[in-house]
Amino acid sequence: MRLLTHNMLSSNIKGVTDGFPLKIEAGKVVEKEVDMNTDFLKNIFTKIEWKPFVEAAKTLGYSELPEDVDPSLLDSQDFLTKFHHALLEIHLEEGALVCPETGRKFPVSKGIPNMLLHEDEV
């Protein structure tokens, strides 16, 4: 699971009012190179919840991201490289995503978060 995905997901258990951001329990973290596409990054930038993104990156051991951002940073190659790396190249292979309200764990195995709810959670 990449951090882009983490930034999109939440715990949608019945009764939970704010299931975002999910806490990350990191087991195995791997890095995989991804071709950089500036247009893609610029589009996605506007959709990212930045604070949770920075926190999630730190949990996975990457702390090069600025705490505060504004769109002008998208002209900086240095920023784009870091953003790209954090967004797409760090991969949670094994671990869990934890609902911030209930503590329910959504396992991540073989890189794939299991977001399916139990029948009493829907």
Binding site: M1, L4, T5, M8, L9, D18, F20, I112, M115, L117
Partner: peptide
């Protein structure tokens, strides 16, 4: 080919997206 950014196990009847996420 570039592998998917993400694969998920999820039910399209109850999508796991955070509130406010749109136009992705």
């Amino acid at each position: 080919l570039q592998e998917p950014i993400s694969l998920l196990r999820a039910d399209n009847n109850l999508p796991p997206w955070r509130a406010g996420l749109k136009e992705m």
